[in-house]
Write a protein that binds this DNA or RNA. Sequence first.
RNA 1: GGGCCUGUAGCUCAGCUGGUUAGAGCGCCACGCUUACACCGUGGACGUCGGGGGUUCGAGUCCCUCCGGGCCCA
Length: 880
Amino acid sequence: MREVPDKVSLDGLEDRFDARWTAEGTYAFDRTAERADVYSIDTPPPTVSGSLHVGHVFSYTHTDVVARFQRMRGKRVFYPMGWDDNGLPTERRVQNYYGVRCDPSLPYVEGYEPPLQGAEGKSVKAADQQPISRKNFVELCERLTAEDEKQFEALWRHLGLSVDWTRTYQTIGQDAQAVAQTAFLRNLARGEAYTAEAPGLWDVTFQTAVAQAELEARDYPGHFHKVSFHAPDGTPVQIETTRPELLPACVALIAHPDDERYQHLFGTTVTSPLFGVEVPVLAHPAAEPDKGAGIAMCCTFGDLTDVQWWRELQLPTRSVLNRDGRLTRETPEWITSEAGVAMFAEMAGKTTFSARTAVVDALRASGDLDGEPVATQRKTNFFEKGDKPLEIVTSRQWYIRNGGRDAELNAQLLARGSELGFHPDFMRVRYENWVGGLNGDWLISRQRFFGVPIPVWYPVDAEGQPVWDSPIVPDEASLPIDPSSDVPAGYTAEQRGQAGGFVGDPDIMDTWATSSLTPQIAGGWLSDPDLFARVFPMNLRPQGQDIIRTWLFSTVVRSHLEHGSLPWSDAAISGWILDPDRKKMSKSKGNVVTPMGLLEEHGSDAVRYWAASARLGTDAAFEVGQMKIGRRLAIKILNASKFALSFAGEGEIRLDPAAVTVPLDRAMLAGLADVVDAATEALAAYDHTRALELSETFFWTFCDDYLELVKDRAYGGGDAEVSAETLSARTALALALDTMLRLFAPVLPFATEEVWSWWRDGSVHTAPWPVAAPLRAAAGTEARLDELTAAGNALAALRKIKSEAKVSMRTPILLAEVAVPAASLAAVEQAIGDIRGAGRVTGELTIREASEGEGSVDVQGGIVVVRSELGEPEARKPKA
RNA sequence: GGGCCUGUAGCUCAGCUGGUUAGAGCGCCACGCUUACACCGUGGACGUCGGGGGUUCGAGUCCCUCCGGGCCCA
């Protein structure tokens, strides 16, 4: 045995053990392990440019508990960490942090230094941002994310994540780019990726297309306008619209097929006011009879219903909106009337807002506006990161098939969902609802700068027009490439943009198009096939419930298409952190706590305890109180361990089960054996909360009852000769300690490692997970935890008389008569020596069976002291 | 409008496939510095299990309905 410190402490354990674990490679992955012996985790790569919050600490702790449990069970745990530095959040942050913006038309500047450094938190106005080249911009992105990564790693290490820090990746890294581009090109080769000229959601602020998964519906104020169209005979047909500026883009009026009011109009045409364009009146079930007038104007495109009508009724495309959110400058060809042309001239080039004013004024003047516009709130689609309503514009974009327009693929993906183990299981419904409700393929083109480029070029024909339908693809061996600077085989750089030459695809891929490949990136799909075979398909994907439809689903899609399998067997879904007002914690609400400060204040074990106390899938309150309880538990483990180890004196700690001969000791071990079984079962089922609760409850019983009861016997009166009874107690204490340290190790890695270091070699985290069998063997077949409970109750009953007499627990009991329910009688009598010692009964102690009505089961198991006499406390000995 | 989760002591939560007087911790009250621990110990008080119906010999646990939170999708 090494040394037990005189004064135990949790302080400083995080740094000390992080250094040791790193030096000793405690969490290093053994890459010689076969797949069957591996437990692999597809760790969520945090968005490094986002800020760290307690939600991260919360959910990553859940994963770490799983990792540590599996490691102790003998699995070779593959637990890498990635950094998601891809995409828009980084771009935005770089703009503000360095005061720059990307202008792809500018040339690269060697040794560029940005105007600002660390302008955190403020947003720099676009006009004040210095325009720089794409390459310079990307370099700044990389510079900033490198700093973020350091901070993140420091936090994770401090928290005690048992990540193999030699295995990190970046979603923008070269390898990740190669994986993303390779996977894309294979999708393309198999016909799973394609381009299409199609209406899509467009964010005018960010100037990018937006996918279905990135939508967010918000209430947005608008006005209903009652506008009259005219039948050939002059009869007005009144519609209601919130977007009168799209009147020139109108292609039809549509009502529900069953709507009595419009039966006579179906199949006829009407003429639009102001513009004089003749449009058909059509029937479609998506028209809502009780909404407005029940007849709607269908435009190119006001909302997604317009798109549906356009597609299903084969309506013409009459687009008047540009990607910059302004109306086109040229008068559309379908507007031919003199008045219409004049009207459009008034709107041309204006924002939708100004154009609307112009149209409304004109309608009012022409008498085609009935009444004044009525204010309304309506759900409008927004880009989740944007603040202007999305427009729908037609453009050429890349798509990956995801079952959104293919019933067979959809069914296959639903089947994958049913193969996947969701924890908790009800989260599966979110997957099924999402997949079942898809209405289009996955749009992956993004008109951004910082991301993985779409790795294709297009030939330019003799007229100088790109030939979109026959993209030029690179060799996989040459990946990653950037088509905006790399030149396709068979061409020269001078041919870029020239007739007979080529152009590169200007877009990058959606973040999810890369993130959906994290198992492949982390597992070395391309760079290390040997490793990949040992870790893929992985065991676990931990993540939040909000991104089941995006991250989880898209990863399933990619794996299904590329590997014909699930990417992992199980998904662990963590809940949200709620603030004390039951609100989701978020930065905008200003209720976010800095995680590092939290860890430093309470200690990592304490914060981990709080996190581990919440079940998967369940929202948890941010509760400092719970952390304090965790801290108390960790300290208690240190102290109880110090105590248990102190009895051995200078000798070695014995763990020989055969030495446990006293019934009370056996009863304790029998209870512990049950805890081991139940906790193991719970952890194997991803229920860390139950495992912790069982271990914790047992531990407190161990401290309050068992430890108190055997104290005297374990001391052995200080005799040099150790009796069998004393040896039994000491051995049982050591066995229990040895087991409990392992049980707590996944949740409290620091405190348990500290104790382990006092008397064992190596790390508790690579020690085998405890099993019940040896404890049961030591306990024998007769022993039951009830015996310890009964003895503990008897002790509590004796203490109660002291507590009620308001005297110190040191007070001796000169005489006591204790009534014990029949069921507990034998156990109490058996442990009478220990009870007498712990209760300081110096005189006569009578135990008898309780009679009817004596005692209550709720209080000390029905054990009551019916007669007693207290002595004077002995004089206190001066402290050594 | 559809879906999922949730409502148990002042607070945070356990209560498995329905079975005797509903549990834990925190907080609270009283007491105690007992040679592991005052970041402690001992004892105590505290609940018509959101409301209302129903099924059942029996419901916190199953069904219906209403109310309140949270999230997702329309």
